[in-house]
Amino acid sequence: MVSKKVEFIVGLFVALGLAAILALSLKVADSGFSGNGTTYQLYAKFENIGGLKVRSPIKVGGVVIGRVSDISLDSEDFTPVVTLDIFEEYDNFSEATSVSILTSGLLGEQYLGLQPGFIDESLEILQPGDYIEDTKSALVLEELIGQFLFSQGSGD
């Protein structure tokens, strides 16, 4: 027969192990199981998405309101289509909302910056599944340098 002390220590060990797994999934990887509540989808077409990735954050004034859930290429006009997963509580963006691809810091990762448009009677609120029309593409450094050099050359 196993003594009570051994059983107690084994129970402690197993509890410690399970607590470690739980702590890893909750403290180290945030929101492992459930995600952050419900979301709805918006779409946006860009000319160039630069270094945007799936799971990149979507921010309004620095506050994260969602994540990029999918990036695909439109099969007809070959422009990238980005799917935006936005939390349900932020559902009041008007048609005049614009979205641009920004970079955090000089060399940081890229994220989507949303500029909420004004709300007016003539403008409709964006519904789930709508496309955001007003988009600004990512700054690609090589293109900028190319344009700069080109304008320098033509100036002479």
């Binding site: 196993v2 059983e7 410690l16």
Partner: peptide, 16 residues
């Protein structure tokens, strides 16, 4: 069960 608990003690708890 008692056999397993005894071995868990030897293999698991003592390795902690």
């Amino acid at each position: 069960y008692p056999l397993l608990v005894k071995q868990l003690y030897a293999v698991g708890s003592l390795s902690l």
